[in-house]
Amino acid sequence: MPMSEEERRLLKELELGLIADDPHLAMELLSGYPSRRIPPGLVPGCLVCLLAFAIVAAGIGSQELAAVVVGAMLLVLGGCLLLNRPATGRGTQRGKATG
């Protein structure tokens, strides 16, 4: 079933609104090449956290305090890698003075 003129007009308005609101997303959709979906620190952060959990578990099992401390420090490092994501630029402007 073909679209009516009213539906075409509304679709064009939505498209122009998207371009005005989020030009980065609009260009990504129009180009056909989506941006990277996995955040940069996700894989290393997960791997470090998994390693840290294994070290903590081994340290608790063997009652080795040094292994538990090292595992806890690695767990903090993994958490920092997971949470340290760069600003995407969508709706955020860091470092710019207001006024």
Score class of each variant (00 low, 15 high):
Met1His: 12
Pro2Glu: 11
Pro2Trp: 03
Met3Asn: 06
Glu5Pro: 01
Glu6Asn: 12
Glu7Arg: 05
Arg8Met: 12
Arg8Phe: 05
Leu10Ile: 09
Leu11Gln: 07
Lys12Ala: 14
Lys12Asn: 06
Glu13Ala: 12
Glu15Trp: 04
Leu16His: 05
Leu16Gln: 14
Gly17Lys: 06
Gly17Cys: 02
Gly17Ile: 01
Gly17Arg: 05
Leu18Thr: 04
Ile19Lys: 11
Ala20His: 12
Asp21Ile: 01
Asp22Val: 08
Leu25Glu: 02
Met27Ser: 14
Met27Arg: 15
Met27Leu: 08
Glu28Met: 08
Leu29Lys: 08
Leu29Gln: 06
Ser31Ala: 15
Gly32Arg: 09
Gly32Lys: 03
Gly32Cys: 09
Tyr33His: 15
Pro34Gln: 03
Ser35Gln: 13
Ser35Glu: 07
Arg36Phe: 05
Arg36Gly: 01
Arg37Gly: 01
Arg37Ala: 07
Arg37Thr: 10
Pro39Ala: 10
Pro40Leu: 00
Val43Trp: 11
Pro44Lys: 01
Gly45Pro: 01
Gly45Arg: 02
Gly45Ala: 06
Cys46Lys: 11
Cys49Val: 11
Cys49Pro: 00
Leu50Met: 09
Leu51Ile: 04
Leu51Gly: 02
Phe53Tyr: 12
Ala54Val: 14
Ile55Pro: 00
Ala57Ile: 12
Ala58Ser: 10
Ala58Asn: 06
Ala58Arg: 10
Gly59Glu: 04
Gly61Val: 09
Ser62His: 13
Ser62Tyr: 13
Gln63Ser: 15
Gln63Cys: 07
Gln63Pro: 00
Ala66Arg: 12
Ala66Val: 15
Ala67Asp: 07
Ala67Ile: 01
Ala67Cys: 08
Ala67Gly: 04
Ala67Leu: 15
Ala67His: 05
Val68Asp: 01
Val70Trp: 02
Val70Pro: 00
Gly71Ala: 10
Ala72Glu: 04
Ala72Met: 10
Met73Thr: 14
Met73Lys: 09
Val76Trp: 10
Leu77Tyr: 11
Cys80Val: 15
Cys80Ala: 08
Leu81Met: 15
Leu81Arg: 07
Leu81Tyr: 07
Leu83Tyr: 07
Leu83Asp: 04
Asn84Asp: 09
Arg85Leu: 07
Arg85Glu: 11
Ala87Trp: 10
Thr88Leu: 05
Thr88Asn: 05
Gly89Gln: 10
Arg90Gly: 00
Thr92Arg: 08
Thr92Glu: 10
Thr92Ser: 08
Gln93Leu: 14
Gly95Lys: 09
Gly95Ile: 06
Thr98Pro: 02
Gly99Arg: 14
